[in-house]
Write a protein that binds this DNA or RNA. Sequence first.
DNA 1: TATTGTTATACTCTATAACTATA
DNA 2: TATAGTTATAGAGTATAACAATA
Lengths: 172, 172
Amino acid sequence: MGRAREKPVRRSVVGAQDRHAALRRIPGEEGTAIDYDVLNAHLGYLIRRVQVWIFQDFIRTLADADIRPAQYSVMVVVGANPGSSQISLSQALGIERARLVRMLHELERRRLIERRRSASDGRSHALHLTGEGIALLATAKALAAEHERNLRQRLGAERWQSLLRLLDGLPS
Amino acid sequence: MGRAREKPVRRSVVGAQDRHAALRRIPGEEGTAIDYDVLNAHLGYLIRRVQVWIFQDFIRTLADADIRPAQYSVMVVVGANPGSSQISLSQALGIERARLVRMLHELERRRLIERRRSASDGRSHALHLTGEGIALLATAKALAAEHERNLRQRLGAERWQSLLRLLDGLPS
DNA sequence: TATTGTTATACTCTATAACTATA
DNA sequence: TATAGTTATAGAGTATAACAATA
């Protein structure tokens, strides 16, 4: 859970210059100072707070494409691995297969993804992006890159790079 | 979303030696290799994966005290700031006040926390731990410290320390 | 028998809106 | 009128169990 944040400012038709407002906010410390005690010594707490903070910017930035983080991860992996099955996608991304079913229903309804019957195994589906899916993924990747540049600027290039290096390959 | 993980092994009466099983697992790479494409270059994705991984161990470790991460953060902060109001707690922890209401209902039902009418402001509640709450918090802190030691060992002391240093004080 | 996709259920957490009682 | 706490609702996301079709 991140610290306090003034009014999430539901973005609607706000221009790109306001897109990363949350990353500029100074949270906490409004009113009486609160003692966090041991919380700030827990890596899990700190990492959770920062994760929520990053995701808020990601969600806001990708809202233009109407794509949420989990949907983005599915689109990216299907795009890079056309024909993969739901079970392998589920395992790769750590999404429960029951949950993935509903996500794919939605993405299929929006004509971004297709489920084709596998030729080799009648039980499994081969997942593919549609033309629209490929186009939307390109847009989403561009927005995600914009988010990433902004995040890098907010954190400072050094800290950003260090975090990438320290976190890549985990859990191990 | 973390990568794949074999069967979460719902802990019930398993001994402490099995408590951190998840932190020892080698996830992913079971079956055909999947291309993660740009995902591993997104700090948000990496940090989310690690956060979920850490929380799974935290939840499993604190299950003995029947305390979830958000409940732990509330108990810790109320313990360190007796008399605080729900609104200041909500702002400090980034928990919606509507959500906090239901959490406090549950903690009050379990006689861990008390809501007392504030003398100075009839609208607000002064939050306090009960005797049982203080005792349970001590147990929870000990379990959390055990989790933290294990995490430190899994990550390596250097990486653990670097992450703490890089993440503390964020978002800023 | 085991696996893939599916449906269903329960619970946690987030986001909002609206209400009440106090200020 | 604003604020603190509350209730209610809708939607993500997680965790499980059970089922049909296929292997």
